[in-house]
C-alpha cells in the first residue's frame, strides 16, 4: 500500500507523445479506433498499415515493446472467443490441418482479432504515456459529464486500495496452506471475489459518510 509511484500502466518518459495534451491524445485514440473499426476486414494490407503506424508511434515514445506486450494479456478473453468462432459459425466450410472450419467464422475471427489487438495496443499506448490524473483532466476538458469523470476519479483512487485488499486475502489463503492456482480453487476464488465486492461496497459507504461529514451535498465544487 502506498508503494510504487505512478500507475502500473504508466511508463515514465518525456517523449513528444508523453508531453502532448491529454485531451488531444484522447480524441486521436477515439478517432483512430473509429477508423479501424469501420475498415472492412477484407482489406488485409490496410490493417498492416495500421499496425505499422502503431509500432512507429510506440517506438517514438521510448516505451519498451515488452512493456506493452505484457499488458496485452487483457485481450485473452477476446482471443478465446475469436478462436471459437471458426468452429461454431455456419456457412461454407474449409479444411485446415484436417479440421473442418467455417469460412465466414474464420473471417469474423480475423476481423475481431485484428481490430481488438490494434485497439488494445493503442489504448495501452495512451495509458503508458499519460498519467491517470491528466487523463481525467483531459476528459473534463472534452466536456465529459462531471459525474462520469468523478466516478472514474474514484476508480483510479481506490484501484490500488482494492487490489491491496485482494492481495492480503490471497496472502491469508496461502498462509493457511491453500495456494489458489488450479481450477480446483476457482470456487474459493469466486467466494473471495464476492467478499471483496462486499468489502468494497462497505468502503464506498464509509467514504460517502466521510464526504457527507465534510458538507458534500451531491455536487463537486472544485
Amino acid at each position: 500500500m502506498g508503494a510504487g509511484h505512478g500507475h502500473r500502466l504508466h511508463y515514465h518518459g518525456h517523449s513528444r507523445l508523453h508531453r502532448a495534451p491529454a485531451h488531444l491524445k484522447l480524441v486521436a485514440l477515439v478517432g483512430f479506433m473509429l477508423v479501424v473499426v469501420a475498415t472492412p476486414r477484407e482489406l488485409y494490407p490496410v490493417f498492416g498499415g495500421y499496425a505499422l503506424l502503431l509500432v512507429a508511434v510506440i517506438a517514438s515514445t521510448g516505451v519498451p515493446f515488452g512493456y506493452i506486450g505484457k499488458r496485452m494479456v487483457v485481450e485473452v478473453p477476446f482471443v478465446l472467443f475469436a478462436v471459437l468462432m471458426p468452429f461454431v459459425a455456419t456457412g461454407p466450410r474449409t479444411e485446415v490441418l484436417g479440421l473442418s472450419l467455417s469460412e465466414p467464422g474464420l473471417l469474423a475471427a480475423w476481423g475481431l482479432l485484428a481490430k481488438a489487438t490494434i485497439g488494445v495496443a493503442a489504448s495501452l499506448t495512451l495509458a503508458a504515456t499519460t498519467e491517470p490524473l491528466d487523463l481525467l483532466r483531459g476528459l473534463q476538458r472534452l466536456r465529459v459529464p462531471d459525474l462520469i469523470v468523478q466516478i472514474m476519479a474514484f476508480m483510479v483512487r481506490y484501484l490500488d486500495v482494492v487490489t491491496a485488499e485482494m492481495g492480503r486475502m490471497l496472502t491469508g489463503m496461502r498462509s493457511r496452506g491453500c495456494d489458489p492456482r488450479s481450477p480446483r480453487h476457482w470456487p474459493l476464488l469466486a467466494r473471495s471475489v464476492g467478499a471483496l465486492f462486499i468489502r468494497s461496497y462497505e468502503r464506498g459507504e464509509r467514504v460517502h459518510l466521510a464526504m457527507l461529514s465534510r458538507g458534500y451535498d451531491g455536487t463537486f465544487r472544485l
Binding site: 490524473l133 481525467l136 476519479a153 474514484f154 483510479v156 483512487r157 481506490y158 486500495v161 468502503r203 464509509r206 467514504v207 459518510l209 466521510a210 464526504m211 472544485l222
Partner: peptide, 9 residues
C-alpha cells in the same frame, strides 16, 4: 481509516 477519508486525486 484515512483511506475512507482521502478520496480526491
Amino acid at each position: 481509516d484515512p483511506d475512507d477519508q482521502l478520496f480526491m486525486p
